[in-house]
C-alpha cells in the first residue's frame, strides 16, 4: 500500500532528523572522550598515540583529588539539607493554610529563573563579611539556594498524587500530625523525595558560576578547578576529568529516571 509506505518513509526520515539533532547536541560532550586518550601533552583532535596516562594523572594529582572530594562532599551535604528543607516547604505549601502561601511558592522557585551570576554576586557580598567564602558551610548554603527549588518541584508533584483523605484517615486512627506525616505521607512521596535529592546532588555537583565566586584558595570545587586549569594549564587531564564528570552526571540522571519510574508505578 503506497499510503502505508509513505507514512513509513516519513517516519524514518523524521527519526533520522531527530537522531541528527541529538547527535549535534551531544557532539561537543562526546568529543572529550577521544581527546582524553590523546598522547600529546596538549589538546588535539583527532588524538594520536592513544594512552590512559591522563586518567592516571588526574587520579594521582592531589589538587584534582582534593577538588573532586570537596565537590562530592558539598554535593552530598547540599542533597541532605536541601531535601529536608524542600520537602518540608512543599508539604507546608500543599497541606498548610497560612497567609502568604502562594507568595512562598514564588519565592522558593525564584532561584530557578534568576541568572546564576546574579545569585553568585549577591551571595559573595553576603558571605564575604560573614567569613563564609571558601568554607564548606558557605558552599552548602549557596548550593541549597539553587537546589531547593528542584526538590520542591519533585516533592510537590509527588504530594499532588497523595489523597489528603489518607492523612485524615491516619489522624482519625489516632496518629499525631507527625506520625501521620512519618508513617503515611512520607512513605508515599518517597520516590519524589529521592528524585529531588538526586537532582539536588547534581545541581551542586555541576554548579560552576556560584562556585567560581565563593571558592577559596584551598576549598575549590572540581568545576572551579577545571576553569583554572583551562586558563593556566591546558592538558588532556581536563578532558579526562570531564569524561569522569560526564559519566557521574549521566549515572545520576539514570538514577533520577529510575526513581521516577518507581513513582509512577507506585
Amino acid at each position: 500500500m503506497p499510503d502505508a509506505l509513505g507514512t513509513r518513509a516519513f517516519r524514518i526520515a523524521f527519526a533520522a532528523c531527530c537522531a541528527l539533532i541529538l547527535f549535534y547536541l551531544l557532539l561537543p560532550t562526546l568529543l572529550v572522550f577521544p581527546i582524553s586518550l590523546g598522547g600529546d601533552p596538549y589538546i588535539r583532535f583527532p588524538p594520536r598515540n592513544l594512552t590512559l596516562d591522563w586518567y592516571g594523572a588526574y587520579f594521582n594529582d592531589p589538587e584534582w583529588r582534593a577538588a573532586t572530594f570537596f565537590s562530592l562532599k558539598i554535593a552530598l551535604l547540599t542533597a541532605v539539607f536541601s531535601t529536608a528543607i524542600g520537602t518540608a516547604a512543599s508539604i507546608a505549601m500543599a497541606r498548610g493554610s497560612f497567609p502568604g502561601r502562594r507568595l512562598l511558592g514564588v519565592i522558593v522557585l525564584a532561584p530557578l529563573i534568576t541568572p546564576h551570576v546574579v545569585v553568585a554576586l549577591a551571595l559573595y557580598f553576603q558571605f564575604a563579611p560573614l567569613g563564609l567564602v571558601g568554607t564548606t558551610a558557605g558552599f552548602v548554603a549557596a548550593h541549597c539556594v539553587l537546589a531547593v527549588p528542584y526538590v520542591v518541584l519533585m516533592t510537590s508533584a509527588a504530594l499532588a498524587g497523595v489523597d489528603p483523605s489518607l492523612e485524615m484517615a491516619a489522624l482519625n486512627c489516632g496518629a499525631s500530625r507527625w506520625r501521620a506525616l512519618w508513617e503515611v505521607t512520607l512513605p508515599l512521596i518517597l520516590p519524589g523525595v529521592a528524585a529531588g535529592a538526586l537532582f539536588a546532588f547534581l545541581t551542586s555537583f555541576d554548579e560552576t558560576v556560584v562556585s567560581f565566586f565563593i571558592s577559596g584558595v584551598d576549598n575549590k570545587t572540581i568545576t572551579r578547578k577545571i576553569f583554572e586549569d583551562v586558563d593556566f594549564n591546558l592538558t588532556p587531564v581536563i578532558a579526562a576529568v570531564s569524561v569522569v564528570f560526564v559519566l557521574v552526571t549521566v549515572a545520576l540522571m539514570v538514577a533520577v529516571n529510575l526513581t521516577q519510574r518507581g513513582m509512577k508505578r507506585g
Binding site: S165, L166, M168, A169, N172, V184
Partner: peptide, 18 residues
C-alpha cells in the same frame, strides 16, 4: 481528631496504599 474516640469510614476508603 486523633484524640477523639470516633472511627471513620471514608468515601473512597482511604486505605494506606503502602
Amino acid at each position: 481528631p486523633n484524640k477523639r474516640d470516633i472511627g471513620m469510614v471514608f468515601q473512597r476508603y482511604a486505605l494506606f496504599p503502602h
